[in-house]
Design a protein around this nucleic acid. Structure first.
Lengths: 141, 141
DNA sequence: ATATGTATTGACAAATATTGTCAATATAGT
DNA sequence: ACTATATTGACAATATTTGTCAATACATAT
């Protein structure tokens, strides 16, 4: 689940998947930008690299990478899906409600432990969680 | 911000807003169902009460109630906005990824305190946060 | 280097949620 | 009941995401 570009491409290839230009570029993009990106932004970044691509392809490829556990999907208050590289250390996000800038927070009060407690107490089995903080960034406050 | 039906309608009326059938019914619905509802579900619930309504009206009214701090908006992993009555005690949600059932969790590890710490450490001013747990409910596990 | 099977892509249409506009209607106070 | 205007409905438009199917490109074998 840790993810340098090399290990990811190696894994995918080993599983018999093709390493197309777009797929390769996507992995590169996700390893370079460690913040959540929208499909639209991703398409733009691909274009900057000279790779024109179709929306359908982007979404399909994102779905693929989600299935391979390479990336994960996060959802903020707007209704747009965002995707980021899956990392070992679970982290959360600070989202500025003025300028929409996003930063990671390595918030470590082991929510996982709390999740386990909740699982035990409620007979609901928690498999994942998402925590987002909204507010104003340094520039906007 | 605490919200029995009476206090809300009183507040709105005092501010010079009209108490239309739909608005009244919406307040009723939100006080009755304390779980997050989609615009579509709300329209259905209105219909059950014999109130046919327009989508545009629903969204506009939800916007209005958001502005009045009567309800708040939550966003799960699907791309649909949900709305629930704003309560004093901040709470979170358990969302079953199989059957989509939602339950509240009165999770009390004062995330607020942690938010304050983060604010102090990062010069990002946190105004709100949302924490959702995904997994499998008792019925689906 | 070339050919081939198939995974991947693109073009386009369609589904879904949400927002904008403007005329019609209903509410609250007179 | 009358009136000013807040609210509503009808309809179109936008935006994001998904489905389909033929065209293309990748990886392997030749």
């Amino acid at each position: 689940m840790t993810s340098s570009r090399g290990s990811v491409t190696h894994q995918l290839r080993k599983e018999g998947h093709r390493l197309t230009k777009i797929r390769q570029a996507l992995v590169d993009i996700f390893t370079a930008h460690h913040l959540p990106l929208t499909a639209y932004e991703i398409q733009g970044l691909l274009l900057e690299q000279g790779l024109s691509s179709n929306k359908t392809t982007i979404y399909r490829e994102l779905e693929f990478l989600l299935g391979k556990d390479v990336i994960s999907q996060v959802q903020f208050q707007d209704r747009v899906a965002r995707y980021e590289l899956k990392t070992d250390h679970h982290h959360h996000h600070l989202i500025c409600t003025s300028c929409s800038v996003v930063q990671d927070v390595a918030f470590d009060d082991n929510l996982e432990k709390h999740a386990a407690l909740i699982s035990a107490a409620t007979d609901f089995t928690i498999t994942s969680h998402s925590l987002e903080f909204y507010g104003h960034c340094a520039r906007c406050k």
